[in-house]
């Protein structure tokens, strides 16, 4: 059983990581590399004479196969990590009578996206390279706390009996009322349009990655369990 869990999570994580990486190369990385031109000063958007224009031109993602290979590899590691936790929770629910199928797995995946990407991303949106943030420790703590609070809230909605599900509302709101750590200065050098597109595309690819992860975890596990 545990062996099925580990095998299924790794297979699903590697596949979802590959899907996510390919989507990132198509949508996210070109924006990231365009942002790097502003980070390094190769391009300047906010010129000193008061003009705030710069040409929109995406660099090709190039032939740095080591860099992009690492992006694929680390996506696989990240999605495998999330997959191990997600599938352990799925199996726990399955043992409690909430039968796991690839379809319910897909819902688990979307819920994972909401808890792990969307909720913390509302307070700390994905940022381009070169963005300056507050001290990393408190931001990581807020990030982890938000994920846990949102995940518990979603579990209450999905499995809570009666009015206990209403507890999910304060749970989901709490991290945002406390508020993510923020600086009192804006440091951004990249055009706001570019940053916004980068953030939105990151969410989009993460949603695809997480949906794939949930579906595939359930798919591999239900099949392994049959055999």
């Amino acid at each position: 059983m545990t062996k099925n869990l580990l095998t299924s999570a790794v297979l699903a994580g590697v596949a979802a990581g590959l899907i996510a990486a390919l989507l990132q190369f198509t949508f996210v990385i070109p924006h990231l590399m365009e942002g790097e031109l502003y980070e390094t000063g190769a391009r300047i958007h906010f010129a000193t004479d008061g003009s705030t224009q710069s040409d929109r031109m995406q660099p090709s993602i190039g032939t740095d196969f080591t860099r992009h290979g690492m992006t694929i590899a680390f996506n696989m590691i990240t999605y495998t990590g999330y997959g191990l936790i997600l599938l352990a929770l799925m199996i726990f629910a399955n043992d409690k009578g909430h039968t796991l199928t690839p379809r319910t797995g897909l819902i688990w995946g979307v819920a994972g996206f909401v808890a792990v990407q969307l909720a913390p991303g509302i307070g700390q949106p994905p940022v381009l390279p070169g963005a300056i943030g507050s001290e990393v420790g408190p931001r990581q703590a807020w990030w982890a706390m938000t994920i846990i609070a949102t995940a518990v809230a979603l579990a209450l909605i999905a499995f809570g009996k009666g009015r206990i599900a209403l507890l999910s509302i304060p749970l989901m709101l709490a991290p945002h009322i406390i508020g993510a750590p923020y600086l009192d200065t804006y440091f951004g050098v990249a055009p706001p349009e570019l940053s916004a597109r980068f953030a939105a595309l990151s969410f989009g690819t993460a949603l695809a990655g997480w949906s794939s992860l949930g579906f595939l975890c359930a798919w591999f596990w239900t099949r392994a369990d049959d055999a």
């Binding site: 059983m1 545990t2 869990l5 580990l6 999570a9 590691i77 990240t78 495998t80 990590g81 999330y82 997959g83 191990l84 936790i85 599938l87 352990a88 199996i91 726990f92 399955n94 043992d95 039968t99 796991l100 239900t222 369990d225």
Partner: peptide, 23 residues
């Protein structure tokens, strides 16, 4: 699935810990 309902708490905990480690 119902018959194989033997997933130990230990197994689930190991998977979660391994996941956190990778992350």
């Amino acid at each position: 699935i119902a018959r194989d309902d033997t997933s130990s708490a230990l197994g689930l905990a190991i998977a979660v810990l391994a996941g956190v480690f990778l992350l």
